[in-house]
Computed example of a mutant assay.
Amino acid sequence: MNPGEERAHVIEVADRLFYERGIQAVGMAELRREVDLPLKKLYSLFPSKQAIVFAVLDRRHRIWTAGLQERIDAAAEPRARLLAVYDYLSDWFAEDSFRGCAFINAFGELGSQSPDIAERTRTHKDSFQRVLAELVAAAGGQPDLAPQLALLAEGAQTTAAISGSAEPASQARRAAEILIDAQVRAVPERA
């Protein structure tokens, strides 16, 4: 493996371990064993465990953003594009590996100790808010609808992780439909 492939392998394995068990529960010695690299090589790829955590969160952000955008892009009209967010959540929550939002998990574990983790979490969540704001604007909704829809999605993520059920996505979707319909009347499709 070249260094780029080794880095990608470490990030993928660390992501799985951190997501399954928590960041603090996984030590560098265990990670080294799982990636099958000497500790010296691991530290040549990443100067610290924190650097690995940041790389994992960056990977999670890219995966989330791409998956969400793909689902949104598949919807034909503005209202359906807003609701596609909750359909994406439903699919994600139904995955056997679902353990909640990696950013919320990292923030809960380390946010008070690591301003950098807290900032990365805020940046990720702000990115989601911007996506919703664009979708709301395209649907003709008022700006305050976007944070309301975000709260439904965030609450569904946490509830689904705790309950072990995908049902919170459907519940959040139904609540989102009510909020959207209260604000957005049939908006003609833009040419």
Rank of each mutant, 00 (worst) to 15 (best):
M1E: 15
P3Q: 14
G4Y: 15
A14I: 09
D15E: 13
D15R: 14
F18I: 00
E20K: 12
R21T: 14
G22P: 04
G22Y: 05
I23F: 09
A25V: 03
A25L: 12
L31E: 04
R33Y: 05
P38G: 12
K40L: 13
F46Q: 10
K49E: 05
Q50Y: 13
A51N: 07
A55W: 09
A55R: 09
D58V: 07
R59A: 11
R59F: 12
H61I: 01
H61Q: 11
I63Q: 12
T65P: 05
A66H: 12
R71M: 03
R71Y: 02
A74Y: 00
A74V: 06
A75G: 08
P78M: 08
L83A: 04
A84I: 01
V85C: 09
Y88D: 00
D91R: 00
F93P: 00
E95K: 08
S97T: 15
R99H: 12
A102W: 03
N105M: 10
F107K: 10
G108F: 11
G111Y: 01
S112Y: 14
Q113W: 11
S114Y: 08
I117R: 02
T121F: 14
R122F: 15
K125Q: 15
D126Y: 15
S127P: 11
F128P: 01
R130F: 09
L132V: 10
L132M: 13
V136I: 07
A137K: 07
G140N: 06
Q142G: 11
D144A: 13
L145F: 10
L145E: 05
L145H: 04
A146F: 01
P147R: 03
L151P: 03
G155P: 01
A156Q: 02
T158K: 06
T159E: 14
A160M: 02
A161N: 05
S165Q: 11
S165V: 07
E167W: 03
P168I: 02
S170Q: 13
Q171E: 06
Q171A: 04
E177T: 12
I180T: 02
I180G: 00
V184K: 03
V187H: 12
P188S: 14
E189N: 14
